[in-house]
């Protein structure tokens, strides 16, 4: 018990002492990312904008996905997805990348995955500018509910941190994960309704159950609902009634919060167990 209290005290002291380091690491990543590019930070806005143009043309025109405001639908969902995929893939190798530091000085090791998640969060904040621009161009009626956007982003962030802690700790011991994770991400992306609406797989029970087990589904749905509240998602057809974006309920909040909290807790447990032997493996 005494050991636990001591460990917790150390955790608080460390967090306070090393918060400037967290800040400096994020700003370093930022500087290095945009070093010597003429447009610099503007790329964080331009990139999603250009990607969106390509994807919405391909899927909206060639494949005729039946979603109203498809460009906005896709981009809002992709924002959460890209945040998750960027944060976790960068975190995955973050402990390995911090090897030179871990071997030389004492640092709380969770700082590395946490820093990558923060960096991804900032990148996403920039791309939100592009998202809002596209939404307006696409004719989405904005509502005050958009101000609730930080809520699903917060849930996603906590989930990302938890997942990144697990991933980065495992990668130290099994380097194969680096290669496997790219494939996993692709599968995961298609199991998240980003380029298709849920109504498309309504009749396929197996697929629908799998998607419902995907944590990202809840974060994406929540984010879309607050960003595009009241707008039509799927037009009324002979087979089904129109689908609207609705205000997230208490249940939605509990599900998202539960997923995020459990993942974070699990991440902390696994990471704190694994970190003692990091130095012998990096």
């Amino acid at each position: 018990m005494n050991q636990n209290v001591k460990g917790f005290k150390k955790f608080i002291l460390d967090a306070k002492m090393f918060s400037p380091l967290l800040f400096n690491l994020v700003s370093r990543d930022f500087k290095i990312k945009y070093r010597r590019s003429i447009l610099g930070v503007l790329w964080s806005v331009l990139n999603p904008l250009l990607t969106m143009l390509v994807i919405s043309q391909v899927f909206g025109i060639l494949l005729k996905v039946q979603v109203e405001h498809f460009a906005a639908y896709y981009l809002v969902g992709a924002t959460i997805w890209n945040f998750f995929s960027e944060a976790t893939s960068m975190s995955m190798t973050s402990v390995l990348g911090g090897a030179s530091l871990i071997k030389k000085v004492y640092l709380p090791k969770y700082i590395f995955p946490l820093e990558k998640c923060l960096f991804a969060l900032i990148n996403m904040a920039f791309s939100l500018i592009a998202v809002v621009a596209v939404m307006l161009i696409d004719g989405v009626t904005p509502t005050w509910a958009m101000l609730l956007a930080p809520v699903p982003i917060f849930y996603t962030f906590v989930f990302c941190v938890g997942f990144s802690l697990i991933l980065s700790a495992l990668t130290v011991y099994f380097r194969d994960i680096q290669h496997l994770y790219g494939v996993l991400l692709t599968v995961w992306m298609y199991l998240t309704p980003i380029i298709y609406p849920m109504s498309l797989i309504q009749s396929n029970d197996v697929l629908r159950t799998i998607v419902m087990c995907n944590p990202l589904y809840y974060f994406v749905a929540y984010f879309r609902n607050v960003m595009m509240l009241g707008n039509v998602m799927v037009e009324e057809t002979a087979e089904q009634a129109a689908v609207y974006y609705t205000m997230p309920t208490l249940a939605d909040n509990l599900i998202c919060f539960g997923i995020a909290a459990v993942t974070l807790l699990l991440g902390c447990l696994i990471f704190s167990k694994a970190q003692k032997k990091f130095i012998l493996h990096i």
Binding site: M17, F18, P20, L21, F23, N24, L25, R28, K31, I32, R35, S100, L101, K104, V105, L107
Partner: peptide, 21 residues
């Protein structure tokens, strides 16, 4: 420890300082 050679000395001084807490 933690010097990033792509950054300038000024930036590294702050970075390294925060590495030491």
């Amino acid at each position: 420890a933690g010097f990033d050679l792509d950054l300038t000395a000024r930036e590294n001084i702050y970075l390294n300082g925060s590495v030491l807490g």
